[in-house]
């Protein structure tokens, strides 16, 4: 059964088409990765699903019901974890969760139980009387999640839930996402960290210029680019690297430099490694190591969109 069904969805802001005739379905029990560079139309789509924006055209169905016709039903069954922290710093963790859960009609002892349950779930049970302004970034992110789950939504939309936090808190959040999924929640997950998406998501959609350009499991997406290979060359100094000369080499489709590593995408059938190394030697670049990588989501994304996820 599909929890979310998007059909011919379009959103225009004056003449700019942010979402262009998009079709998408999210199945029950999935952790669905929604990938796109900045401005690809990802947030606009999420905002329309959350009823924060009106659609220009098309339909969105949640659990089989049109959200435009049943907005209360849709809103009651969705939990939002926005990218920007959406909490009251001057209210305690308990008061934050309790207030937002109260908006979903929870009252009295049920409200108390659900609030405590949500705080315990994100590991803030013992901090329920503390003010978020005294929390670390990771704790605030966890509270941000607790505020979205106390009403037990069927679909949780997580927009960059791990941005800007320490590895420990990130692991905690990723484990929480898996746990929520095991408890029966369907999750739409967006992130700029490709490894998170690769690790968590059962299915992934890549959105570019307002359209879904690829959709499927990790393996299905990787299989799209069997004709591409990625070569990583670690260098001693970035200064002398001439990326333009590398791009001109036969078979090379994309070149980028990250942390003293030249990452080259190339057509698989062309054996151009020798030419690449010769070019680097000619440019007097000191090579430390050379590796050929198996295609990953990053490569898929780059190949399909021509952009990095963080662009």
């Amino acid at each position: 059964m599909n929890v979310l069904e998007i059909r011919n969805l379009t959103k225009k802001f004056d003449d700019f088409i942010a979402v262009d005739n998009m079709n998408l379905s999210v199945r029950e029990g999935e952790i669905f990765g929604f990938l796109g560079a900045n401005g690809a139309g990802k947030s606009t789509t999420i905002n329309m699903v959350s009823s924060l924006l009106r659609t220009t055209k098309g339909e969105i169905e949640l659990l089989g019901r049109n959200i435009a016709k049943h907005p209360k039903f849709a809103k009651s069954n969705i939990g939002i974890v926005p990218q920007d922290l959406a909490i009251y710093e001057e209210m305690t963790a308990y008061e934050n969760v309790s207030f937002f859960a109260g908006l979903y009609g929870l009252r009295g002892s049920e409200l108390k139980e659900r609030t405590i349950e949500a705080l315990d779930f994100v590991g803030l049970g013992d901090k329920h009387k503390s003010l978020p302004k005294n929390f670390s970034g990771g704790m605030k992110r966890r509270l941000n999640i607790a505020c979205a789950i106390a009403h037990r939504p069927k679909l949780i939309i997580m927009d960059e839930p791990t941005v800007g936090i320490d590895p420990q808190s990130r692991n905690y959040i990723l484990n929480s996402v898996r746990k929520l999924n095991r408890m029966g929640c369907t999750i739409i997950y967006t992130s700029h960290y490709m490894e998170e998406v690769e690790e968590l998501c059962t299915r992934i959609a890549i959105v570019d210029h307002g359209k879904i350009i690829a959709e499927g499991s990790k393996e299905q997406l990787k299989s799209i680019i069997t004709d591409t290979k990625e070569i990583w060359i670690a260098v001693k100094s970035e200064g002398a690297v001439d990326l333009e000369s590398l791009k001109r080499l036969q078979g090379v489709t994309a070149v980028r430099l990250e942390d003293q590593t030249i990452k080259i995408n190339s057509k698989a059938e062309i054996n151009n490694l020798n030419w690449i190394i010769q070019q680097l030697i000619k440019d007097q670049v000191e090579i430390r190591s050379v590796e050929e990588q198996a295609p990953n989501l990053e490569t898929v994304f780059l190949t399909l969109t021509g952009r990095n996820l963080r662009d």
Binding site: K75, I78, D84, A86, Y104
Partner: peptide, 13 residues
């Protein structure tokens, strides 16, 4: 400013 508007608007209120 607090971004809590997102949550308020997304709630069934």
């Amino acid at each position: 400013k607090r971004n809590t508007m997102t949550r308020l608007s997304a709630s069934p209120v």
